[in-house]
Amino acid sequence: MDGRVRIRVDHGLCVGNAMCVALAPGAFAHNADRQSEPLDPYDEAVDTILDAAASCPTGAIRVEDAGTGEWLFPPRGS
């Protein structure tokens, strides 16, 4: 992995809990509806982004390797 990731937030699931924004403010911000939007480009360590994704109470965040398209979160099979 070259270190760049692609982040997606499912707005059907995001309840505006703001955990991601609090944990990784360089990668997520709230939009006018107070739902989370991934920032592009982002400025945050990948580990921090993965932590934020895991902290989402509704599993609304997906992270993939920008180069290979491999799923990084949620782990495959879950």
Partner: peptide, 19 residues
């Protein structure tokens, strides 16, 4: 489905024990 009920609330106080 979808089922966007509000039984666990929403926003920053969204139920901690939801899972």
């Amino acid at each position: 489905q979808p089922n966007p009920h509000l039984s666990f609330g929403a926003g920053i106080h969204y139920c901690l024990g939801v899972a």
